[in-house]
Amino acid sequence: MSGPTELLLEVRGLAVHYGGIRAVKGLDLEVREGEVVCLIGANGAGKTTTLRALAGLAPSTGSIRYAGSEIAALPVHRRARLGIALVPEGRGIFPRLTVAENLDMGAYTRNDRVGISEDLERVYGLFPRLKERQAQTGGTLSGGEQQMLAIARALMGRPRLLLLDEPSMGLAPLAVEKIFETIRLIAAQGMTLLLVEQNARLALAASRRGYVLEGGRIVHQDQAPALLASPRVRAAYLGA
């Protein structure tokens, strides 16, 4: 077993260009095993781009070391197989497949039937609402339920690192609360999480550490409580 201090993800000099536009300009960050880390920042700061680059969905330069090996050159599906699961912005569920089929797709790379059915029970335990709706198509779920489905589907792949992109986006306040409750629960079970969120207060409350992004660079990083207390962060992102 790896201790909580072991580095799972180590990013050095990550840069992403979209045509001539530099969306992420060389950032360093690290995530330790079992840790919840959040990236906060304003619109267009490069949070989502960073996450997409880590999953392999955006072409990037720089070094990404994951579980001791360099993965920057690997395509998306290879990274997914190594245990990096992205829950994309806007959820990216399969709208015309049923909830059960969606979850089944999450376990696509796995062959252990027993383990899969155990995990299915586990995610249904985490999200009883999904069990009620397992025969319903993904597209007919409410926004909150779709977010639950997206997280549950990612968990079905038994990831080592869960990348969550804006889980609160477009959700009703109650649903946001519920999603974050679950995120805390998943984290308490030992999952390593890298969370991108506009709602900085919520994100920091759920995290151990946080990075503040501005214009594609990390301008501030600290323990989450310290960031919550920092006057600069409070003024810029917490509206207080």
Partner: peptide, 24 residues
């Protein structure tokens, strides 16, 4: 088959299918 499921996933959402570990 497994491939059939992968095809369905690609039809529905190619990016998500890739993120599921499917070699699209």
């Amino acid at each position: 088959s497994r491939i059939g499921r992968a095809w369905a996933a690609i039809r529905e959402d190619e990016v998500a299918a890739e993120a599921m570990g499917i070699n699209t």
